[in-house]
Design a protein around this nucleic acid. Structure first.
Lengths: 97, 97
DNA sequence: TTGATAGGCAAGTCATTGCTTGCCTATCGT
DNA sequence: ACGATAGGCAAGCAATGACTTGCCTATCAA
């Protein structure tokens, strides 16, 4: 649902995760953890990130594919595109048709 | 800040308020209250709405102009536009140039 | 000036949520 | 088979956030 997308985007850590996935798609949970620590100095537990990823996934912003013991996470921008035009007036700036 | 914009959009009631302001700009607090009750069946106190408007205003999504005892609220979509392209990849679908 | 209308401030309640800790399952390498 | 790696589940805690209630200020109409 679109409702979940807004809630998913509300948290700063989740937005960082999306940032990471834009930069490199198909990362695993541990990779994301490591990246958040080294690049952003975020010292969060593995579970914290896992829960954030679950929120992002149920919002449709992240899609996962399992492969062996690995679970790769891919960004999906489609839910974003549907949301963005909600408050853009017809007379406003460039409503995507 | 952009941070505040996401948090402001996280609440369903605040999104309804934005919906109202897209439809008709320059509404007063009481007008918005009445509209939310009649059109969406939301039975919230005046203060609740007032607080929501404060959040929206400090996020830059709503701009107010005082006139006598009235305070008119106008929608400002500019903060939205800056945010929307954040996770759209260059190779992605139609990045607005 | 008085009453009514439009709005603001502040404390208090209750639910949500972000995060941790502890334990458990599954897959891979050797 | 055994240990190590990748991930999941669930209870508990603490902080944030949405909403209410009560009272107060300011503007307008009579």
């Amino acid at each position: 649902m679109a409702e979940d997308v807004f809630k998913a985007l509300a948290d700063p850590t989740r937005r960082r995760i999306l940032d990471e996935l834009v930069e490199r798609d198909g990362q695993t949970l541990f990779e994301i953890c490591a990246r958040l620590v080294t690049k952003h100095g975020l010292g969060l537990s593995r579970q914290a990130i896992s829960q954030h990823l679950a929120v992002l996934e149920s919002a449709g912003l992240v899609v996962t594919r399992r492969q062996g013991r690995y679970k790769f996470h891919d960004l999906n921008t489609e839910p974003l595109e549907r949301i963005m035009t909600r408050w853009l007036r017809p007379d406003g700036p460039e409503s995507t048709p």
